[in-house]
Each structure stands twice: as C-alpha cells, then as structure tokens.
Design a protein around this nucleic acid. Sequence first.
DNA 1: ATATGTGCAAAGCATTTGCGGAGAT
DNA 2: ATCTCCGCAAATGCTTTGCACATAT
Lengths: 126, 126
Amino acid sequence: MSTTRSTTQREAIWGVLDAAVGPLLPEEILTVARRRCRSLGLATVYRALQRLEDEGRAARVTSGNGRVRFEVARGHHHHFECRDCERVYDVPGCLRSPRSLERTLPAGFRLEAHDVRMQGVCADCA
Amino acid sequence: MSTTRSTTQREAIWGVLDAAVGPLLPEEILTVARRRCRSLGLATVYRALQRLEDEGRAARVTSGNGRVRFEVARGHHHHFECRDCERVYDVPGCLRSPRSLERTLPAGFRLEAHDVRMQGVCADCA
DNA sequence: ATATGTGCAAAGCATTTGCGGAGAT
DNA sequence: ATCTCCGCAAATGCTTTGCACATAT
C-alpha cells in the first residue's frame, strides 16, 4: 500500500491534535497543520475533525465562551480555561465517581456523562 | 415615577427568566415574552439579556451543543442536559468545596469559578 | 432638546454543505 | 470508470450592530 494524499492530510491534522497540551480551535489546528500541508483548507479540517469524532478518536470540547475545540479522546479529565489568554488546559483526574454525581439528580434522570470546567488565570498569565 | 414602555419590555423578559426551571434559549425567551409584548423583537431580547448579565442579575450558560442559554443568577448549582429533548435543568448543590477543586490544578493556576455539566436522559424522556 | 430604548434589516462569525476537480484503485 | 477526498465558495444559523423613529425627561 502506498502513501495516499488524503492520509497525509489527516495525519497532519491528527499529529497536531496528538501533540497539543489541551483542546484546540479548528483555526489553530489549521494554522499548525498548514506547516506540513500548505494548501490545507478550513473545511477539510472541520470534516476531518467530524470524522475523528465519529470514530471516537477525537472529542469535541465547548468552552465557556461558546467556541468549539477538539482534543484527542483520552481518559476522562477536566478542563481549565484561562480568562486572560483564553487557552484551555487539560486537568487530569476526576472529582468523584459518576455514581455519587448521579445521586445529586432528581429521580428518573439517567446520567451518561459529565464534564467539569474550571475558569481562572493560568500560570503563564498570573 | 410612571411606568415606562421600556420597563414593561424588560420586565416581561425578566419575568420569563425568573419563572423558568432552567436556562432558556433567547428564542424561547422571545416566544414566551411575546405573549405580553406582541411587538417584541429578538434583538431586544439579546440586548436585554446582555444588560442583565452585565448587572449580574442573569447568567450565561453554554450547553454541550454550543448553544447559549440564560438564567437568573442564583446560588451556585450545576446543569443537566437531556440528549433527547435538549432541555437543560438546574441541579442544586455542588460536589465539593472550591478548595479541593483547586488542589487538582498545577502550581500557579488561580481558580476563580467552575461549572459542572451532566449529560443524559431526563425523567420526561426516559 | 437630549437621552434612552426599540424593531427591522444588514452585517459578522463560526460552521456546514455543494460542487467540480484531483488522486488512487 | 469508480470512489474517496479536497479546496473553494456559497449557504446556514446564531448573535450583534447600524439606523431611523418613538417615548420619556
């Protein structure tokens, strides 16, 4: 099997995602991935991200300001959003078991997932 | 002091927000508020919400699908999003003290706020 | 007269989609 | 030939803004 053009594009996008320290904006992914694929377009980035999400390899993260970011789907973790530089950082671990979270819900509600977002000022900006 | 036209509009919008069981979409607020103010426009709703937020009386809530909702700014609580009907519910209480949340952060990060979003199926849809 | 608030329509932005073309089998 | 993927541009959907007018002081 030979190296296809499309594999190169997707690999560039995946590589950017995989190397990131936290979820990235599609625009940011485009900018970095263009270093490898000059002609890459934003629509392709969105399509690739959608596909990676469908395959369960990437996860969509909506931050407080409503902008969508993407990250490699690794184990469950939380996010920290810096109100100064707007970057989003991964925060490892989880507060509690899903079980105990579920106990805070009214009867009849089925819990399937959750996410925790913290806001403040990051070490770089403080 | 007499009742001004603007007070009526804003009061209608505020009334809708105050009576809601969870955060509402601007469109939803418009629909309900129109029952009192027939000529009310969407732009006015957005402007009123922006103002209420600036005054600290309303809070902006971004749900998982990225859509913006507004609610009356009451004590700290969490949110539950139904993946079926897409409604968002308030969930009272908080998991832990902010202190213990802060301990999960890397050194140098200053925590100012946080929010927890739960996803699943609500009692109505289950 | 000045200031504020409003509806409407236009402008802005982020995201998605349609389409013709390029690359691979 | 067929299929998939891509870049570009147009379309979409939510939110904000400009503008002219109405109401209040």
